[in-house]
Design a binder for these strands. Structure first.
Lengths: 285, 285
DNA sequence: CACAATTACGAGGGTCGTAAAAATG
DNA sequence: CATTTTTACGACCCTCGTAATTGTG
């Protein structure tokens, strides 16, 4: 009977062009591969190779077989991926969030309520998060705007208040509050993994030079040691650093309310979580 | 590694619903199948079955896997068929003809010229023959009309003259010639495997009752022993039967010229045959 | 003479079948 | 108690690797 192994070997041969090279790539002795390809021809009842004394090449049949085999191996891999993803989807809760702070709150909640599930969290901008929710990548999302729709359940989750973190000597440190317009033009330290905040910064502070930092630890260390402004928020546990002055930002956009969104068809699955959400927003204020 | 064998076994199990029945159908012991399905789960790294003490059923993953496996097995069979058909097409000359008589001439010619090829001949009506030529089913066709086209080579091949074969006592036996109109209304013996002649008979002789015969031998025997008119032609080797009067049919449609048509891209392949065709028509008159 | 493919042959791993165990209706 | 699945165990087949052969550039 024809087997996938043989098709894989055929494809490797097609790529490598000689049996010996293919055998090496397949971690197989060359005679073994030679025999296997003979068996393939036997199974198909079709000659696939043109054999000369010390050279073997694909004939027209073989070339067609390679074409077909490529498609099949691709489909098989697809099947495997699909099944695994489907299985995984039943053991994991995929959370998509447009900001990091709500994740710090929601992750412990869900892992306590559903200890048998694996949590998988992703940060991204608004559009990507909503896309992921609609195509099923995320079963729970956190957005900065309420989501309407027949099939969704949308709860207020929490608020976040963006603040400037400044070295005491900085001119802005004397203000009670600032707005983006006043702030624009500085050189700032910015942590890059912040979901929708990133695009917001780029839009609201077009003249600011951001020094990006991709790891949170490095970012926190730099904030401590560099005399540069950076952002923090009331939800950030690191916002009470020494030697920094904290100044709230006035703009509405800097003080978002986050919403937790779940598909109605998951209502039963997330029953306990939804019960908790009803009181959560009030509770955390 | 995942193998097709396992997918086939999975599909059989899905159909039979118990391992024992599936094992029986697969000509395999039931423990072997049980192990094989365990290995499949291992290869996929996904649980496919819900196991109770004396019952095993597909879970959701398993159902999805069955769906995918069906598609894959179908594609694989398709690949095999395609490759075999392609191989076969290079070792066979497929002839389509709208009438049997030209086949009796062309078949020996081709098999002598191309002894390394297998001949495969089909009779059908005009439309089907031309369809088959265009979609590549036939590489050589015989038609009753010349075929025009940039990509085709069309040669006159031979003529055929349809005749009535009558018992001597039949009223029409005294005629030198007859036409369809005169003939219509009789009861006739008709051999059914005659390509375009069949439709022609139905159109030209709407009031004739045909007694159809599907095997040539039986037909010839019946013609000998029954006092019924039938058709024969100058190309039919059996047309000189005893106790029958032969009367030509006048109508143009009863005296067709047959054409042999080949695709220009096969010009090289059929070089020898084409050379022969140039003189063939004149030669056979 | 290096390299490529095939053939021959013995070793080892994987799959098979039988037998036994466990559980169910 | 018949039926179903799983586990245990020994047998066997198939594929593997090594070695040898043949042929080419």
């Amino acid at each position: 009977m024809l087997e996938l192994n043989q098709l894989k070997q055929l494809l490797t041969f097609a790529k490598c062009e000689t049996l010996s090279k293919a055998a090496e790539e397949l971690l197989l002795s060359q005679p073994a591969l030679s025999r296997s390809m003979q068996k393939l021809e036997n199974d198909l009842n079709v000659i696939l190779f043109e054999r000369r004394k010390n050279k073997i090449t694909l004939n027209d049949n073989g070339k067609l077989a390679v074409e077909c085999a490529e498609k099949i191996m691709y489909d098989v891999q697809n099947m495997i991926d699909r099944i695994r993803a489907y299985d995984r989807s039943k053991h994991t809760i995929s959370i998509g969030s447009c900001a990091p702070a709500p994740l710090w709150k929601i992750t412990p909640l869900l892992s306590e309520l559903y200890p048998e599930f694996t949590l998988s969290a992703n940060l991204n901008d608004h559009e990507q998060i909503i896309n992921g929710f609609e195509n099923g990548t995320y079963s729970v999302i956190i957005t900065a705007k309420p989501i309407e729709g027949e099939n969704v359940i949308c709860h207020k989750f929490c608020e976040e208040h963006l603040m400037l973190s400044l070295p005491p000597a900085h001119p802005l440190a004397m203000y009670d509050k600032v707005d983006f317009k006043t702030l624009d033009g500085e050189t700032m330290l910015l942590f890059s993994e912040i979901g929708f905040w990133y695009n917001l910064c780029m839009e609201e502070l077009p003249n600011t030079r951001f020094i990006l930092q991709h790891t949170k630890n490095d970012f926190d260390t730099l904030v401590q040691s560099a005399a540069l402004p950076s952002f923090t928020s009331d939800l950030d546990d690191n916002n009470q650093q020494t030697n920094r002055v904290i100044v709230p930002i006035k703009d509405t956009k800097a003080n978002p309310t986050f919403y937790c969104v779940i598909n109605k068809c998951n209502r039963e699955k997330y029953k306990e979580f939804l019960d908790l959400l009803k009181n959560f927003y009030i509770y955390t204020i």
